[in-house]
């Protein structure tokens, strides 16, 4: 990709890495939380629901600042994690954490809807055939909710690719470390003559977003066909 400068290429690669890990690591937790919200009655359900949705409502800068206070080098959690060799502050892992938290409500919403749409009577039928709760989840609920889980994963990935406010507040904008696509575009627009580099990154952003959308459509259709097909 000779038309991309080293710094631009770095930003693209970093963004893909950040978004991939943000989505992959938060997906199991998102499925668990979505299942709990969809199927369980428990005390404090509304509080959990509110906490999950908070990043969607708060200004991203606020979320980023709260992350900095909590996970930063002087933050309570950050200091603890630093002792076991995990550090978020001003590193790409911090960008991934910010992206995961910002994308989490979108993932949970999509997955929760699809789990709620799974017919509990099918789950009952599975239980009568000898499946315990975990097996019912693995063999019936999860496969039937798969289209929504795919949608949630793609949404989470796309949100992670585009996350800006919380990321730049939490881990700043260090080329090669924490400079994701949106941060790079922002940085290029701050310097004279940076418009063409910014434009190239904008095109790449659009291509990646479209690819993710098409991919999720194709996968969702394949899953749907499998259920209706021969």
């Amino acid at each position: 990709m000779s038309w991309l400068g080293a710094e631009e290429w770095q930003a693209v690669a970093l963004s893909l890495k950040v978004a991939f890990w943000a989505m992959t690591l938060s997906l199991p937790l998102a499925i668990f939380v979505a299942y709990a919200l969809a199927r369980w009655q428990f005390a404090g359900k509304q509080i959990v629901n509110g906490l999950v949705h908070l990043p969607l409502i708060l200004p991203p800068v606020v979320t980023g600042y709260l992350l900095l206070l909590t996970f930063g080098v002087t933050g309570p959690v950050g200091r603890g994690l630093d002792l076991i060799g995990i550090s978020f502050a001003f590193r790409w892992t911090g960008a991934a954490l910010a992206a995961a938290i910002m994308g989490f409500p979108l993932m949970v919403r999509a997955i929760r809807l699809s789990i709620e749409a799974v017919d509990t009577r099918l789950e009952d039928a599975a239980a009568t055939l000898g499946a315990n709760r975990l097996m019912v989840f693995a063999t019936v609920t999860l496969p039937l909710a798969l289209p929504g889980i795919l949608t949630g994963a793609i949404l989470g990935f796309a949100k992670a690719m585009g996350e800006f406010g919380a990321t730049i507040t939490f881990v700043s904008n260090i080329p090669g470390q924490t400079q994701t696509l949106p941060s790079a575009i922002y940085a290029f627009l701050q310097v004279p003559g940076g418009e063409s580099a910014a434009a190239r990154l904008v095109v790449i952003s659009i291509v990646i977003a479209m690819t993710a959308l098409v991919l999720s459509e194709v996968l969702a259709r394949r899953v749907a066909n499998r259920m209706e097909g021969t």
Binding site: A125, L129, N132
Partner: peptide, 11 residues
Amino acid sequence: PTHLRRLGYIF
């Protein structure tokens, strides 16, 4: 529990 009752339930 249902899954231990050894049933064949035809709905």
